[in-house]
């Protein structure tokens, strides 16, 4: 935790607390209209460790992820039950904007804003009026996203002109720039080539300890490489949750075994 960038006091965060937060889900149910996607999930994420969410398409991993920073509420007809506690505080009673500053998100498709790389990184910082050293934030966040060496001499370039692998890492840096406690990643490497994918994994590993990354992935090798804990979700429920090595080498449940073996999904 020594190398955690010190961005000062953010909003409502207590000054004495600088470590990654504890995120706890209790009886979460999410439905889109009549379609009950998540049917009661209880989970506690380990602070500072990487957690991977795996499961077949449509099992509710992305929905679960998007519930954690209340992005689901932007979708019409979405109903949410249960509670999610961030350091003991129910996120559904928090201001969604303050919550999203603490629980950042990286999307499947790189979505840099059509402005310079510098402006992209500083977008959240400036919009949130965070009092930080901007140059330092740019450098630390780009370094953590494993892209500083590639683009430090052209920060004024439009981020749209980067390759998609670089764009995704700029998006990771943009998310880290507001110094969140939890970083949600929705298949961050799914649309990237192997080299860029490796770079993204590198940056996920670099977050360990200081942030709590939660990653949705379809790629089980990737889950195995980067995560400390793995959650297997099937039909809107948690089937198995445990240390990654244990879960992959010795799955306790038949569904998990079949999914890992590639028999469905």
């Amino acid at each position: 935790m020594a190398n955690r960038p010190n961005h000062g006091n953010h909003g409502s965060r207590p000054e004495d607390k600088t470590g990654p937060s504890c995120l706890e889900i209790r009886g979460l149910k999410v439905a889109y209209g009549a379609n009950q996607v998540i049917q009661g999930i209880d989970l506690t994420f380990h602070p500072g460790k990487v957690t991977a969410l795996i499961g077949p398409s449509g099992c509710g991993k992305s929905t679960l992820l998007r519930s954690l920073n209340r992005m689901n509420e932007l979708i019409k007809g979405c109903t949410i039950e249960g509670e999610i506690l961030l350091d003991g505080e129910n996120i559904f009673q928090m201001d969604p904007m303050l919550l999203r500053r603490k629980v950042g998100m990286v999307f499947q498709k790189p979505n840099p804003f059509p402005m310079s790389i510098r402006d992209n990184i500083l977008f959240g910082v400036e919009a949130g009026k965070l009092k930080v050293n901007k140059e330092e934030v740019i450098k630390t966040s780009l370094t953590r996203a494993a892209i500083w060496d590639e683009i430090n001499d052209r920060l004024g370039d439009n981020a749209f002109r980067l390759s998609s692998g670089q764009q995704q890492r700029v998006c990771i840096a943009r998310c880290l720039a507001i110094d969140p406690e939890v970083v949600l990643m929705d298949e961050p490497a799914a649309s990237l080539d192997p080299t860029s994918s490796a770079k993204v994994e590198e940056s996920i590993l670099a977050m360990k300890g200081d942030y709590t990354p939660v990653i949705v992935t379809h790629n089980m090798q990737q889950a195995r490489r980067v995560s400390d804990y793995t959650v297997f979700i099937y039909l809107g429920k948690v089937v198995e949750y445990g240390e990654t090595e244990r879960l992959f080498s010795d799955p306790q449940r038949a569904e998990t075994k079949d999914y890992i073996a590639g028999r469905f999904g």
């Binding site: 979505n111 919009a127 507001i178």
Partner: peptide, 9 residues
Amino acid sequence: EGSLALGVS
């Protein structure tokens, strides 16, 4: 979405 996810109003 990317902007809103950064806690931007």
